[in-house]
Simulated scan of single mutants.
Amino acid sequence: MRVSQDEKVQTVITTYEVTPGTYLDLLEELRNSFEEFIRKQDGFIAGAVHTNDAQTRIANYTQWQSREQFLNVLRSDEMRRMNRKFSDLSKGFEPVLYEVHASFEAG
């Protein structure tokens, strides 16, 4: 995955607040959703899942070819079903759409 302000893609960062008791369950659900559904959807470019050491936060970062393609997936029956599971396993989560305004590489 390459982050660049030159590319016209839709970036979505979703954060989840969890407990150490639900952390692994939500992580497994997220992995399954990427493997079985999200990565196969029109417009999906790439995604990554991040966790903190305390096992109280999970974030995922996805890139889509367009805002419309992301919203179509978000509104699909399958994604709505998955989001209900994510909600059950977390204290709360929020997908937020972003634009990249600056990126930096080593050197």
Rank of each mutant, 00 (worst) to 15 (best):
W64Y: 10
D53T: 11
G92Q: 04
A48P: 00
D42F: 02
S90P: 07
V73L: 09
Q55A: 08
F104R: 10
I45D: 02
S87F: 01
I45H: 00
A106N: 06
I38N: 06
I45V: 10
P95E: 12
G92H: 05
T51W: 00
Q63P: 06
M82I: 09
F93M: 13
V96I: 15
V49P: 01
Q69G: 02
E94H: 07
E78T: 15
R75K: 08
M79K: 03
M79R: 07
V100Y: 04
Q65E: 07
Q55M: 10
T62Q: 10
E94L: 13
L74E: 04
V96P: 04
A46L: 08
D77I: 09
R67Y: 09
H50T: 13
Q63E: 10
D88I: 13
L89G: 04
K40G: 01
K40C: 06
N72D: 07
H101Q: 05
Q69V: 05
Y61Q: 10
D53V: 12
T56S: 11
L74A: 06
K91Y: 01
Q55W: 02
N52I: 04
R39I: 08
A59Y: 05
N72K: 14
N52V: 10
W64G: 01
K91H: 02
S87K: 07
E36F: 15
S66A: 02
S87G: 03
K85A: 02
H50N: 14
S90N: 12
R84M: 13
G43I: 10
M82G: 02
V73E: 01
R84E: 15
L89D: 03
R80E: 11
F93G: 08
G43L: 13
